[in-house]
């Protein structure tokens, strides 16, 4: 029996039971050590997604940004440009609080798209995306996941993507990475969109990049204007190269 509170047997001290996480009493109560990551369930499903997409020859790209940065416009133009190169193996999972407007825009380009409506939710999680993928069953494809427009919440939720791309438009200000650092910390790529508007705003490209690099020294940049077509060739080259070396990413 332990000398602290009288729990257990003679073979094991109270401290030892704490260390091993065994249930034991503190007088009238029992401590149960758990020490489990709260996102462990999401992370487990994300790992399953990653393994599944890898086995199906897909490269999944989680596209995150504030509302109105141009995620859907970039996707539309990417699909068109890839199509012009003869590459049509693209599938899209769209996330929004309400409406299937974005999935409609993608389907009009002849690309399969599934809309997830999160209603009161502010982000997609791995399980929602797994269910949406069940409907798509895409193979050997670029799988774009357009997250809910929000630079805060989606940062915490791994979906199982191989690439996380944060899209930022120059109209949002070049200090945006510092204001929403978690999203930039977890991203592989930063696409700077609406660069055709640079002459009309105070944002400076170099300052924006410096700020993003303060948070994530590995982040890689692309500069685009989805509506004018600027920078899309390099962006599409990069996506194609990802698909070619998909085993390595």
């Amino acid at each position: 029996m332990c000398s602290t509170c009288g729990c257990g047997d003679r073979e094991m001290s109270h401290e030892e039971m704490h260390r091993q996480g065994l249930p034991h009493t503190h007088g009238a109560t029992v401590d149960i050590a758990v020490e489990q990551d709260i996102l462990s369930d999401n992370n487990r499903v994300a790992r399953q997604n990653r393994a599944r997409w890898s086995a199906m020859g897909c490269v999944a790209v989680n596209l995150v940004s504030s509302p109105g940065s141009g995620k859907t416009a970039l996707l539309e133009q990417t699909i068109v440009r890839l199509g012009e190169r003869g590459f049509r193996r693209v599938a899209v999972i769209e996330g929004d609080q309400h409406t299937d407007n974005d999935a409609g825009r993608i389907r009009r380009l002849g690309v399969p798209a599934v809309q997830i409506n999160t209603h009161n939710g502010c982000h997609l999680d791995a399980r929602m995306v797994a269910e949406a993928y069940d409907e798509l069953q895409a193979r050997d494809s670029l799988l774009f996941i357009e997250n809910v427009g929000n630079l805060v919440c989606p940062a915490m939720f791994d979906l199982g993507e191989q690439l996380r791309v944060v899209l930022l438009s120059v109209t949002e200000g070049d200090d945006k990475p510092l204001k929403y650092p978690y999203m930039f910390a977890g991203a592989d790529i930063c696409v700077i969109n609406k660069i055709d508007l640079l002459p009309y705003v105070d944002s400076r490209l170099e300052r924006l990049k410096e700020n993003a690099l303060k948070i994530n020294s590995e982040i890689r940049f692309f500069e685009t204007s989805a509506t004018r077509g600027t920078g899309l060739a390099l962006w599409c080259d990069y996506l194609c190269s990802c698909l070619e070396r998909r085993e390595a990413i």
């Binding site: 729990c7 047997d9 109560t29 050590a33 709260i38």
Partner: peptide, 16 residues
């Protein structure tokens, strides 16, 4: 860190 560390429940007489 973001984890569930422990729970405390009322002791059950039958358990250690």
């Amino acid at each position: 860190e973001f984890r569930l560390s422990s729970l405390t429940v009322e002791a059950d007489e039958d358990k250690p």
